[in-house]
Design a protein around this nucleic acid. Structure first.
Lengths: 219, 219
DNA sequence: CGTCACGTCACCAAAATAGGCGAGGAAGGC
DNA sequence: GCCTTCCTCGCCTATTTTGGTGACGTGACG
């Protein structure tokens, strides 16, 4: 894993002291190129847009300290102008809300500012190699979110094969007539299946059935 | 972070050599209690069921080498008999499918067998403290999955406040009448909103609107 | 002041759906 | 054999939904 070339890192951090500390971490001895550092995202973006590809960063350390509008929107812009750049969030917030939004926006890593200097350096290298460095508690949040998002039905329902087919087509938004065609049966049959399906799902409308199906991952 | 008590770790690993290697890692000098090790999940579960709470493990290192039925079902059983136990998967597989299913099942961590001994020990401690140790590439997969699951609408739609309200109620499976009550308006109004909503969402039925809303996370 | 988006309400008709009933055949378990 | 589940098809009606049109008041914006 010895770095053949220095990892180009950019830094966005509004606190002067902390920004300089980060900047001092980036030394050739640590396998990192001298890092441009910016006090706000706008100047960084302007520089990024003007930079030739060869000078664009491999990793961007991004502080998203400001609540509300703060840096998450920036991520999309960075991806647009430097698609290969891995973005590592560096912040004091560790609530699932913020973590989830950062990852949705395209962040690769998420470090807390309580991380040790050595950890940050490791994280930069890890990110540059395609990994996703995260502080332990952040990793736990991410795993928790993923588990929640993929958890199956609370009370599992056993649908017959045809009912399952029907449900999938319902979720596609087809009408009864279209479903009958797709399933190669009479519209009366789909009607029967639909009624049975409603009973099993404990709903009284197609819309509710679709909601149940998608929420409980029945499809 | 000094461990005041030794972390009780159990090991399930079918390869004799590797199992003994893991077992040798668990020493008081490393902050770990002498670890019971099992060649298969069944005997581990039997032992777990018979064990008093005070002897139940803090962390379970679980090999899920066998493809198909292998260990993921075990996770639920372990959670049932030792709710506080953190489960760390230890395997050679690193495809998103397996990782996702392990996490859905309730695993806290996921290590590749290529991990160094020192890393495994760190992971055990991290898991015991509520973290989620993962090999870098696994972390990247997890982040990628989470990003995919939470990515917003492909083509964002701008709904008016009332339309958004309506959509939320639709997703709850309410009928037009119920929605009218909830929104404190006439049923004719909900009808108008519904039509406009359909146009914006480019659908022609409530079911399709619900599908679009949930798939594109418009709610 | 005009315009536009929005929310509200209404009337209308064609179409779809929800839901109840019965009934035959095929497959599988006991 | 009997029973159950599932799939299939049909008939029925009340209700809902879809989609079109028009209309009024409000507030924001230029």
């Amino acid at each position: 894993m010895k770095p053949e070339t220095l990892v180009k890192t950019w830094i966005v951090e509004d606190h002067d002291t902390f920004r300089r500390s980060l900047q001092r971490l980036c030394t050739p001895e640590r396998g990192l190129a001298i890092a441009p550092a910016f006090a706000n995202a706008e100047t960084m973006l302007a520089t990024l847009k003007a930079a030739p590809d060869s000078q664009k960063p491999d990793v961007l350390l991004l502080d998203v300290g400001l609540p509300g509008r703060g840096g998450l929107e920036i991520i999309a812009d960075v991806h647009q102008h430097a698609p290969q750049c891995r973005i590592v969030i560096l912040t004091v917030f560790e609530d699932e809300e913020k973590i989830g939004r950062a990852i949705s926006a395209g962040a690769s890593g998420y470090l807390l500012k309580t991380s040790r200097a050595e950890t940050v350096v490791e994280a930069i290298h890890e990110a540059a190699q395609g990994g996703s460095p995260m502080s332990p508690s952040v990793a736990a949040s991410v795993v928790k979110m993923l588990a929640k998002l993929t958890k199956p039905a609370a009370q599992p329902v056993s649908l017959s094969p045809r009912e399952h087919d029907l449900l999938k087509l319902l979720v596609e938004g087809l009408t009864a007539k279209e479903i009958a065609e797709r399933m190669q049966v009479s519209i009366h049959t789909t009607s029967t299946h639909t009624r049975n399906l409603f009973t099993k799902l404990n709903v009284h409308s197609r819309a509710a059935a679709v909601a149940r199906a998608l929420k409980d991952r029945l499809v």
